[in-house]
Design a protein around this nucleic acid. Structure first.
Length: 479
RNA sequence: CGGGGUGUAGCGCAGUUUGGUAGCGCGCUUGCUUCGGGAGUAAGAGGUCGCAAGUUCAAAUCUUGUCACCCCGACCA
């Protein structure tokens, strides 16, 4: 049977092979390219442009919640890494080492940071002396390296870009408040900027960060029904404070160990963006992270006045703070339409000789494919309105998909059925035991994603083992 | 680390069974005509067939070894 002809014939359809669709999209939009080092990707200007917008939006939120940026070294001495036992055990298998400087072997090998808790804590132990030094609220934007066995651009790469917040507090309550607050920042960002609805809650013991007391997470559902961890916030308790001797003299004259948190999000979010919003034509970017929000495609650009009009509109859009661009390349309009749709640009503005005669232009939406003639007079306001509408609509679409692929199970039969038929989240009561969790994973391939903050009681017993249930839990296959 | 697959022009592939001049589509360069959903035309450029040995008069093709990448699992942001 002949495949239905699509506008983009060179990307694999999502329902045929989602992985290939993903690879096709990221390569053809020129977001990334593979490099000569396995697992290390080049983030090209289009992909990096998205990351820059993510950084800008997030950084503003960090500043607003009282955090400042700092930068700590890439290399960590082995002795430092080993100071927190659970932490080193968790990360050791994927740490890359520097063993030589120039021609000389090093006296102590240096680890390339897989995360920066250890080196930052070693500094905090020097900086924190008194309750007056607290809280310490720092964030760093950097790269980290984790030697991964299997890699995929954005989702799992040996080197990736991220931000990691590291804070120190006087009390357990303050640390817990910070942990929850920053997950809240992530959630608000995911929904309002990335237009990705997330489930927020606590990780199981098995899934929590190595060295943390407990880990909170936000989980999103991809179009293929798999969950993606989009960001985590850890309450480190006093584990690192004890390992690194971070003590302060409190108001009451007592020497006390500090309470800490760390939280991070990475370029992996871009992978989520692609897999939550993409469609058969390619990428679909929410306006707030689109490097180009409105592309102007001149039709019959060689004809007199067309390019001039296009540039005139461009100027107005740029002045209104809209990220816009005129595509004056020597290609047919249809070719450009397809390419910009592939690249996920939210709004396309078409302008040709016939439009100019009538004082109008065409506005086309990437999300709904709707086209409308709009008077050139005041068109920047129209574009701005459209961008807001698209941002809102994309969140709604993603939410509707997520809800349609979330299944509530009260029995093991329903649980199995949910996994086989729904391809998404399965909500069920769970006992909280690691053994039970492992058994569920072996039987079904799904793992616990989180125990959501918003709890309800579906039943008194665990959906799998029948022991007393502790928490409503989200299960899914995951990236 | 297990199971499967693929390496031939920038990209996608045919050619391998049965050894005999390196092919096709897209893309790329130049000219002319086009331009409202992937334009037409003419002339071009581009390859140690992943790598290394071997068999042969002759290897992309057969043999052995090796490397890389992709997919599905296990492990992880």
């Amino acid at each position: 049977m002949a495949r239905e002809k699509t506008f983009v014939e060179n990307i694999t359809p999502q329902d045929e092979d989602f992985s290939r669709w993903y690879t096709d999209v990221i390569m053809q939009t020129k977001m990334v390219d593979y490099s000569d080092v396995k697992g290390c990707m080049v983030i090209r200007e289009y992909g990096y442009g998205i990351w820059e917008l993510i950084q800008k939006e997030m950084d503003a939120r960090f500043k607003k919640t009282g955090h400042k940026n700092a930068y700590f070294p890439l290399l960590i001495p082995e002795t430092l890494l080993k100071k927190e036992a659970e932490h080193v055990e968790g990360f050791a298998p994927e740490v890359a080492w520097v063993t030589q400087g120039g021609e000389e072997p090093l006296a102590e090998r240096l680890c390339i940071r897989p995360t920066s808790e250890t080196i930052i804590c070693s500094m905090y132990s020097r900086w924190v002396q008194s309750y007056r030094d607290l809280p310490v609220l720092l964030n760093q934007w950097c790269n980290v390296v984790r030697w991964e066995k299997s890699t995929r651009p954005f989702l799992r790469t040996s080197e990736f870009l991220w931000q990691e917040g590291h804070t120190v507090h006087a009390t357990q309550e303050d640390a817990e408040e910070e942990t929850v607050k920053m997950l809240g920042v992530y959630r608000e960002f995911a929904e309002n900027v990335l237009a990705i609805p997330v489930v927020v809650g606590q990780k199981s013991e098995k899934e929590k960060f190595a060295g943390a007391l407990h880990t909170y997470t936000m989980e999103a559902l991809m179009l293929d029904g798999k969950a993606l961890q989009m960001g985590t916030s850890h309450n480190l308790g006093q584990n690192f404070a004890k390992g690194f001797d971070i003590q302060f003299l409190d108001k009451d004259g007592q020497l006390k160990y500090a309470w800490q948190t760390s939280w991070g999000t990475s370029t992996r979010m871009i992978g989520g963006l692609i897999m939550v919003h993409g469609d058969e034509r390619g990428l679909k970017l929410p306006p707030r992270v689109a490097p180009v929000q409105c592309v102007i495609v001149p039709v019959a650009a060689h004809k007199e006045g067309v390019l001039e009009k296009a540039n005139e509109i461009l100027k107005a859009l740029l002045e209104a703070g809209i990220r816009a661009e005129v595509d004056s390349r020597d290609q047919s309009p249809g070719w450009k339409f397809n390419e910009w749709e592939l690249k996920g640009v939210p709004v396309r503005l078409e302008i040709g000789p016939r439009d100019i005669e009538k004082g109008q232009a065409v506005l086309a939406r990437r999300d709904t494919h709707e086209k409308a003639f709009v008077p050139i007079q005041g068109i920047t306001d129209e574009v701005a309105l459209l961008l807001n509408a698209i941002q809102a609509n994309m969140l709604e679409q993603a939410r509707a998909f997520r809800d349609a692929h979330t299944y509530t199970a009260t029995t093991w039969e329903e649980f199995m059925q949910g996994i086989e038929e729904k391809h998404g989240f399965v909500r069920a009561m769970w006992c909280g035991d690691t053994e039970c969790e492992t058994a569920i994973k072996e039987k079904t391939g799904v793992t616990t994603r989180c125990m959501p903050f918003e709890q309800e009681t579906l039943s008194d017993v665990c959906v799998h083992c029948g022991k007393p249930a502790k928490k409503l839990t989200y299960f899914a296959k995951s990236y």
